[in-house]
Design a binder for these strands. Structure first.
Lengths: 116, 116
DNA sequence: CTTATATATTCGTATACTATAATATAGCTC
DNA sequence: GAGCTATATTATAGTATACGAATATATAAG
């Protein structure tokens, strides 16, 4: 493949990953699983300042991970693609498996240590 | 959930996402789908300096997305969890669908423009 | 047109990331 | 041990990102 094209694709791919690479944006995405919500709803749910939520939503919007629609004074957001949620879940599973593995090691170590 | 615990989990989750959030690391992960490889193999495949590949592998290693084993002078890397690959693929599909959608819009616009 | 509310944007700053070059370490072979 | 190759680490400079506070915009109601 043309290296420039390849790099362009990988840059875009990374941009999408970057959109997920922040704890608050993950909280927002998780919150949106329940369905469409307004900025204020999410700010309340997550106990975050409105400006913070709005800033992060702007990033998610720019990268088309969420869509928004205005209804009067409210702007409703929703997850743009169900695959985003699935990726969220997969990566959380990776994390959980890592933690489980560490836990095992830790327990094994305690056994050895206590039998000395 | 205890907000501190929640934040800790989301921080870790974001750390894993961050590991994917760089074009070169995505190239590396993609390269490793073919199977175990050494640092040098990957540097050759991707036409990147050895130090660059090694640095990015260090990040992937710290976050346990890849495992490594030494065999003599070589260090072989492999993807730690197949779910990482699946997340890679899902997010690439998200990107592809976005591009397709943009393409459609673009074509639709051209039609309108040319009929004026 | 003014006020009130919801949302978005801007700005300054602190922090974190990436890239490159140089250097260091580890394990062979002789 | 000397020299060679593979890999890792460090230093640093440049860039990007996140956060908080303040400000701006948009809509609805009066």
């Amino acid at each position: 493949m043309d290296p420039e094209v390849r790099d362009g694709i990988y840059r875009m791919h990374a941009q999408i990953c970057k959109a997920l690479a922040d704890p608050k944006r993950l909280l927002i995405i998780n919150d949106l699983r329940e369905g469409e919500k307004t900025v204020g709803d999410m700010a309340d749910d997550l106990e975050l300042p409105q400006a913070t939520v709005s800033q992060h939503l702007a990033i998610l919007r720019q990268r088309s991970l969420v869509y928004s629609r205005r209804d009067g004074v409210h702007v409703y957001y929703r997850i743009a693609n169900e695959k985003v949620t699935r990726a969220f879940d997969l990566l959380r599973e990776v994390m959980a498996e890592q933690m489980a593995k560490e836990q095992e090691l830790h327990n094994a170590y305690k056994e050895v240590a206590s039998s000395e």
